[in-house]
Amino acid sequence: MEQLNIAKQSIWKSKWLILSIRIIIGAVFIYASIDKIIHPDRFAEIIMDYEILHWNIINIFAIWLPWLELVVGLLIISGIWVRPCAFLLSILCILFITGIAFTLAHGVALHCGCFSTSSSEEVRTWLSLWQEGLLLIGCIWLWIAYMLKNL
């Protein structure tokens, strides 16, 4: 049992694994933010299609979220405040998954707007949620790994 605990903890504390996940997660969010920063107007249209937020706050959300993704992505890659950033990204992933699932459940065909603001992007389906799921797992992993690191 003791050896099992040691093995479990060494996975969580593997420097190379943590570094790889950090770089991947950070890079994904930085990449995701770029098109939305360039085209905040199109991102606002996509948010409107979700029919979740009140129309009056859509613009500010469309302006803010991409910059949040960029800042957090850069912090994670740089190794600064990784634990709180990973926690924040986990919450964002949960919100994205919930938002997409809510809209799909209501039968609304939508473009995610996750990585592109193009109106020619493929419509999301339930199966395509695996991408967000994988991201969420990565963020939670990172959070737990950094929690253990400080103990």
Binding site: P40, A62, W64, W67, L68
Partner: peptide, 23 residues
């Protein structure tokens, strides 16, 4: 982080070619 990114977003929006009205 939330506050800093919000301030940054609002400032950049002022100079953005597709500047969106906040209200």
């Amino acid at each position: 982080v939330l506050l800093a990114s919000l301030v940054l977003a609002i400032i950049i929006n002022l100079f953005h070619p597709m500047k969106l009205p906040l209200w």
